[in-house]
Computed example of a mutant assay.
Amino acid sequence: MALIKRAPFTARRLAALGFFVMLLIVLGWLHFSGAAATRGLDRKDMDWNRDGTTTMQEMLQSLYAVTVTTTTEGPRECRAFSWRGDDKVFRVDCRTVVKPDKQ
């Protein structure tokens, strides 16, 4: 029984593998650094200038320019939005989260 020798990765497969590895690294860094796009925001919540419409530029800013810090105090959960590199908060969204009783 002869063993079939497999060809090494082709250049196209190596490029695709490299692309997906870099994509995963970038997404991991965005999540670790608190980017707004990785925090489960709806499109309507990305209206940073509060003009009533969310533009493509504002959605892209959620990737690279806006960070979110989430705090929880009892049933109240607040998200503080700030520009990357600046600790000045420009918007805070709070809501009450009802958790089911543990039985």
Rank of each mutant, 00 (worst) to 15 (best):
A2N: 12
L3A: 13
L3N: 12
L3W: 08
L3I: 10
I4H: 01
K5E: 14
R6A: 08
P8F: 09
F9N: 15
F9K: 13
F9A: 10
F9T: 00
T10D: 06
T10G: 15
R12L: 15
R13W: 07
R13S: 08
R13G: 04
L14G: 11
A15C: 05
L17W: 01
L17T: 03
G18C: 07
G18Q: 00
F19T: 09
F19V: 05
F20M: 14
V21H: 02
V21N: 02
M22C: 14
M22S: 15
L23V: 09
L23P: 01
I25P: 02
V26H: 07
V26E: 12
G28H: 03
G28D: 03
W29A: 14
W29K: 13
W29P: 10
L30Q: 05
L30R: 07
F32I: 04
G34W: 06
A35I: 00
A36V: 01
A37R: 02
A37D: 07
A37Y: 03
T38I: 04
R39H: 11
R39N: 12
G40H: 00
L41V: 08
L41F: 14
D42E: 12
D42R: 01
K44E: 15
K44L: 15
D45G: 08
N49Q: 00
N49I: 00
R50L: 14
D51S: 01
D51Q: 10
G52Y: 13
G52D: 09
T55W: 04
M56L: 13
E58D: 06
E58Q: 08
Q61N: 08
Q61S: 08
S62H: 04
S62T: 01
L63N: 11
L63V: 15
L63I: 13
V66R: 04
V66W: 00
T67K: 09
V68K: 03
V68D: 02
T70S: 14
T70Q: 14
T71S: 12
T71V: 11
T71Y: 04
T72G: 01
E73S: 15
E73H: 03
P75F: 02
R76A: 09
R76Q: 08
R76G: 02
E77D: 08
R79E: 00
R79W: 11
R79M: 05
A80S: 13
A80T: 01
F81H: 04
F81I: 08
F81V: 01
S82V: 00
S82N: 11
R84M: 05
G85F: 04
G85S: 07
K88F: 05
V89S: 02
V89N: 03
V89T: 14
F90M: 12
R91E: 15
R91P: 06
R91I: 12
V92D: 02
V92C: 01
D93E: 11
D93S: 11
C94F: 04
V97S: 01
V97W: 04
V98C: 03
V98D: 11
V98L: 05
V98N: 14
V98S: 12
D101M: 06
D101N: 11
